[in-house]
Every structure is written in C-alpha cells, then in structure tokens.
C-alpha cells in the first residue's frame, strides 16, 4: 500500500532533516507513528499524502508514485484516495455539520455531489451519533462531536487510505475511546489502511503495528520496515 524508498526531506535551511531509507505499510493494516515532537511524524504523514514532496527518494501509495505527481495531480490524489483527520479538527466555522462533512465534494471537480453522497453523509452522521446536529455550526458542538464530524468528512469519499494526525489529542478519555471505536470499526469494515500519528501510548494497543521514530532514527540508514 505505502512504499517509501530513499526518502530525504528538509524544511528550507533549518536543522530538521527526515531520512527514511525504506518503509513499507501493508494494505488494510493499522499503523501508529510515535516519537518525540519534532521527530518528523507529521512530516511523514504529509509526504505520504502528497502535501509536501521529498528532496530525494520515492513515496508510493497504491502503486502511484505520489512524489512524482504534479501539484494538481497530488490534489486529485488526496481528495479521491486519502482521508485526513487533524488534531484541531479543522472544521469550517461558517458551514453546518452536514456541509462540513460534504466539504471534499465541493472543492474538487473529481468528486460529484449527488443525492447518494448526501445520503451517505447522513448515514455516517447517524452512525457516529450526530444526526440530530446536522444543521448546527461547529461552534455549537462539543470537542468529541467536532472530531466525529471530522472523521465523517475524512471517510465520506470511502478512501483506501486514512491518515490521522493525533486524532484524540484534544479529547477527554470518554470521547477519545468513542472516536477510536468509530475509526477502527470503519477501518475493519472497509479494509481501509490507517496510519496515525499519536503521542498517546494508551491507545497503541489498538494498532497492529507501531513505528517509533526514535528507533527509526537509531536505525538510521538501515531503514524501518
């Protein structure tokens, strides 16, 4: 599903440098990236999603060399293939819950919004327990509800790859478990590949594989797989 070879990335002239000789993530698996802040976990997520491009090396997802795609191609790739969930939810304040869920279908011509999509959005909302709040703006939702909306938005396109960046970082324990249940139930049922960045070691048991970026750095050029 995800194959990284000889990847090297730097932000401008700073000291930060990410080097990944090799990394392989099998389809349908759940993987957690852990490690200290600044170790490059989120950067790797962005590289996998095609949000940024490596200086050298290959990033391949579902047999597509994302790092070789042009900007428009990578945008199309993301909106059709990748579901993204962020720690800060990143919902648009001026849209209702339903419109936030439907957002991917309104920002790229590759996705066509129709009645089936709307029905699917409502069904997802029903499933995560926010179907009675579809007309509300995000500011009138609890933190847990907002993240559930963000999860619905990420999975609406039925993406084969779900990338989550500390999805439970802003949630209390009850909401954390609920959001994780939703994510893992969805991944299990759909066969989606899940890659998640987290600092929360209590949730690592849920993942099939954990990649510790400290180990990764100690391994150095030998790579991680």
């Amino acid at each position: 599903m995800i194959r990284i070879e000889g990847l090297r990335f730097r932000y401008g002239e700073g000291d930060f440098q990410l080097r990944i000789p090799e990394l392989l993530v099998e389809p349908g698996t759940t993987t957690a990236f852990i490690g200290p802040s600044g170790s490059g976990k989120t950067t790797l997520l962005n590289l996998i999603a095609g949000i940024i491009r490596p200086e050298t090396g290959r990033v391949e997802t579902r047999n597509v060399e994302v790092s070789a795609l042009s900007d428009p191609e990578r945008r199309r790739f993301r909106v059709t293939t990748v579901g993204l969930v962020f720690q800060e939810f990143e919902l648009l304040e001026y849209l209702s819950v339903l419109d936030n869920i439907l957002l991917p279908y309104r920002i790229h011509a590759a996705l066509q919004l129709d009645a089936t999509v709307r029905d699917r959005a409502r069904a997802l909302a029903e499933r995560v327990g926010i179907s009675d709040k579809l007309d509300r703006p995000p500011r009138r939702l609890s933190q847990g509800e907002r993240q559930r909306v963000a999860v619905c938005r990420a999975v609406l396109t039925d993406p084969p790859l779900l990338l989550t960046d500390e999805p439970t970082g802003n949630l209390d324990p009850v909401n954390r478990e609920r959001v994780l249940d939703i994510l893992f139930d969805y991944v299990r049922e759909s066969g989606t590949t899940l890659v998640s960045v987290t600092h929360d070691h209590e949730i690592l048991a849920r993942f099939g594989r954990v990649v510790d970026f400290r180990d990764f750095h100690s391994v150095g050029e030998a790579g991680v797989s």
Binding site: A49, R75, R76, R78, V82, L84, E90, P104, I107, H108
Partner: peptide, 9 residues
C-alpha cells in the same frame, strides 16, 4: 485545510 484535503487550486 482545503489544500490538505485536496481542494483544487
């Protein structure tokens, strides 16, 4: 956010 999700330019 729109860019990351994949919004066209």
């Amino acid at each position: 956010t729109l860019f990351k999700i994949g919004g066209s330019r």
